[in-house]
Design a protein around this nucleic acid. Structure first.
Lengths: 185, 185
DNA sequence: GCAAATTAATGATTTATTCAAG
DNA sequence: CTTGAATAAATCATTAATTTGC
């Protein structure tokens, strides 16, 4: 609420640290997106000048913003790459590949094999994957039987890859309660 | 009505497309609410396995469900956010894709001169994706403005790089539009 | 009550962007 | 500079809800 309270000279926050307004962040993000990564001193000065219209800002804030943003962006990208492997890329992987396991057989994670501990039982305490770190596991996937080749017409071939139900377990069971049903993760 | 007619192997519908049962949707929603957004192949497999108890399902259905749900959730949140911005007046409520103007980098006397050749306007509400989602900012290393792929899209197809004006968005605005605000560089 | 017609949801495809290996 | 990998956005398409006339 305070981030845009003062239109120009941000009086809201105690001047502990720069608190960018939404507009400032937008402009900075756009500059970043446009390819600007390490602005020159001159550019920093200009950016700061113009952003001062939206709130209190100093040149060093701009400098730090770009530095932090560059680093975090790189970090995020790296994490994203390492943690998510191809499930599906268009219909190449998921739909056309006979065995995804061949492609996705990643090595066994050392000790982090199981997934999302928080979810394992009751997920009532909502685990949120935050921007700082979404816990993600490169679990070795066992076979994924996604082999479909569907063309533009329906009549889809249902290779029911995972066709076993709880009836295997013997008795006729009711639907398990919702919260228990999540335990498979 | 018939959506759960077949308890397990959905024989009800003609296999046009997956028709999730209420239980399946419940579980998926619960997982989503718990923070799961892009399940790994392994997770998809498990989810599909366990949801098959409630009806016919395939892995790709799980995958698509999460994709769609994530996208639509994000979309809804974005719209909600943008509509709940009574703060700054007029020009702030640009919703989706609109590329209003392009701007050029003025020639910097220095050699370090980033380009910013064609900027599409970015959504102003993009600074908050959702409460459980990371702020996504992207770098772009498009240095020399050679876009070899421009498409015919309906929403944004502005190639006239010299056409822009403030008046597009209204008459008197407090803040210049974002893409123009970059012209100070 | 019931279906044809219409609308709203949502499953499934296609397209556009992105970073980063090569 | 090119291309691979992986989305996320946008779009297409089909199913369910619902409206409507009988």
């Amino acid at each position: 609420m305070e981030s845009k309270g003062g239109s120009s000279s941000g009086s809201t926050s105690k001047c502990g640290r720069w608190n960018p307004t939404a507009e400032q962040v937008s402009v900075l993000s756009e500059l970043f997106r446009s390819g600007l990564r390490t602005p020159t001193t001159d550019q920093i000065q200009r950016i700061s000048n113009h952003l001062s219209f939206y709130g209190k800002i100093e040149s060093k804030n701009v400098f730090y913003w770009f530095q932090n943003h560059k680093a975090r962006d790189r970090h995020n990208k790296r994490r994203k790459l390492s943690s998510s492997f191809p499930h599906h890329s268009k219909h190449l992987n998921l739909l056309h590949c006979q065995s995804l396991a061949e492609m996705y057989q990643v090595s066994e994670p050392e000790n982090n094999n199981r997934v999302i501990e928080t979810l394992q039982l009751f997920p009532l305490n909502s685990y949120v994957e935050s921007e700082s770190e979404k816990l993600r596991v490169h679990a070795n996937d066992d076979e994924n039987g996604d082999h479909q080749h569907h063309h533009h017409h329906q009549c889809m071939d249902h290779d029911d890859d995972t066709m076993f139900s709880y009836t295997l377990m013997g008795e006729q069971m009711e639907y398990p309660p919702l919260d228990l049903r999540l335990s498979f993760l």
